[in-house]
């Protein structure tokens, strides 16, 4: 199977927690376990007067990128449910072109 990576356009992540709960349901995880966890950076005011406040989901080693769903032609569950539509799982070979086309300054790439 082709190796895949998770791209998160976290500049638009609103911290809705849908990825966390979806992953927990699918993998039958306990409440204190995470296949993906939303971390929070800020809110903080920089000296230029601008606020910075980011939510950054980070997949754990329990994440298998929903390979079973991808095999049957569906999106990974966190990607499907993400309210802000900021999660994408793509072949590693496409990561570079995805990043080129995204033209954003806040994107994280994971190989969980």
């Amino acid at each position: 199977m082709e190796k895949r990576a998770m791209l998160i356009d976290y500049g638009y992540c609103t911290g809705c927690h849908s990825c966390e709960v979806s992953c927990r349901k699918k993998n039958d995880l306990r409440l204190d376990e995470w296949g993906i966890k939303v971390n929070e950076v800020g809110p903080q005011k920089f000296s230029n007067g601008k606020w910075e406040w980011d939510f950054v989901p980070v997949p754990s080693s329990l994440c298998d990128l929903c390979e079973d769903r991808i095999a049957e032609g569906s999106k990974p569950l966190c990607e499907l449910h993400c309210l802000a539509a900021v999660i994408r799982v793509v072949p590693v070979s496409e990561v570079s072109s995805c990043l080129e086309s995204m033209d954003k300054d806040k994107v994280a790439v994971y190989l969980p």
Binding site: C16, H17, S18, E20, V21, S22, K25, K75, L80, H81, C82, L83, A85
Partner: peptide, 13 residues
């Protein structure tokens, strides 16, 4: 909604 759901619906069970 295009597949998107908030956690309340995901936890409907």
């Amino acid at each position: 909604t295009q597949g998107r759901l908030c956690p309340r619906c995901i936890a409907m069970d």
